[in-house]
Design a protein around this nucleic acid. Sequence first.
DNA 1: GGTACAGCGCTTGTATGTAAGCCCATGACA
DNA 2: TGTCATGGGCTTACATACAAGCGCTGTACC
Lengths: 235, 235
Amino acid sequence: MPPTPARTSRRAVYDELRRRVLSLELPPGAALSENELAAALGVSRTPVRESLILLSQEGLVQVFAKVGSFVSRVDPDRVADAQFLREAVELASLADVPSDPDPAAVADLRENLALQHLAADDVEEFFRLDEAFHHGLLRLAGHENVWPTVVAAKGHLDRARRLGLGETSTQVFITQHADVLDALLAGRREEARTLMQGHLRRVFADIQRVRERSPDLFASNAEAVPTRRSVAVWE
Amino acid sequence: MPPTPARTSRRAVYDELRRRVLSLELPPGAALSENELAAALGVSRTPVRESLILLSQEGLVQVFAKVGSFVSRVDPDRVADAQFLREAVELASLADVPSDPDPAAVADLRENLALQHLAADDVEEFFRLDEAFHHGLLRLAGHENVWPTVVAAKGHLDRARRLGLGETSTQVFITQHADVLDALLAGRREEARTLMQGHLRRVFADIQRVRERSPDLFASNAEAVPTRRSVAVWE
DNA sequence: GGTACAGCGCTTGTATGTAAGCCCATGACA
DNA sequence: TGTCATGGGCTTACATACAAGCGCTGTACC
């Protein structure tokens, strides 16, 4: 008997819109319209509008009164901020992992690693597993509930990562994941910390290269000029 | 010419509600009603409802479909999560402070410290200065934009702090602030880190004592039982 | 051809109406 | 006295109507 898990219409719209933005299915700069989205999703403007407001608070969309709503361009500053935040949190969490971590949580991580090998070529699935792996590491230290905050802050980082998917083979990341886990479970705290920092920064470095190739998707500075009808996506 | 600074009605309602929740003017457990709030604030239900949705995403209020909306009780787990998050971020930021920090930012911090002495007895003002001080420290490392994320996550922590205002003299905190800044500007990084950690944990320790005195304001576990009409506040 | 201006279409913001459901009080009944 | 059914009043979720304003586009004029 959960309190309010009600599968409300707003929740469905929010989840779907967020997924499409993060997957770049709705590309940075794309114009959104409450009316169009409502019609396409078969709901009224209300749940669509409320979802857009939530996404705008996360920084994933920008709403301009009486002008329009747009998917945010990837902001390099926000990417860097998210990188700093996640690195601070994940490294600090490693220090709080007990010497005898929860066996179930460890088993989940090992299984996740195995699945990563299988999904090495499926980018979408690999990203999902990658997220779960990092979340699982926080769980080892009992900090799993901090993950949602990190997730909410790193939307720009995630989009940049997807853009840079071809830069580094997923095999490299999988090996780094395994190395971090091994060092951690062997009690080599300092090594685990160093490995994790290297892993996170490698991801970050890829983004710089991507930016040179696809400058249109990035917002160079605070010039938030809305471009009407740049792209018509969705269905 | 800012893009969308439009002083919209929703923004005003959101700011006001958030302020009242964090200041405990709207105490944990208080019942909120879209209709009542709308009438009291002289607006329609729409901006009120949208504000409540935003606050619920921050965890400051809980909305139960077709039952009611309530100010969240202070959740000790969330307080601990926020403590971990802010400690991770603020300590990591200290490591990124350059050897020659921006003089203007340093001057702001020194002035802030002076004001803290003057406002030692004005709890509300001291809290404001305390927030600005910690925000300013992040600015020294160029991580000032991470502060909003920390702020959004530490609502429960802030309410708990206000409850524990009498536990420790503000003088103690002011001295700790000054010590951290002195060590940092003198280049004693490790000492600054240790002092900051001690400062943040002292604040946290106070909360435990408060909880024993005012258990009603805390949610012991996940029992999210809505209590109708517990308090009628707001003029 | 070039330029200024007016109007129209689209946008979001706000207000209001409708629907569905939970909680509690009231009253019948054993 | 205790217990169970039922209805009314309240809630939020969603749908719709109205208001206000930006920006493009066509047109008149030079």
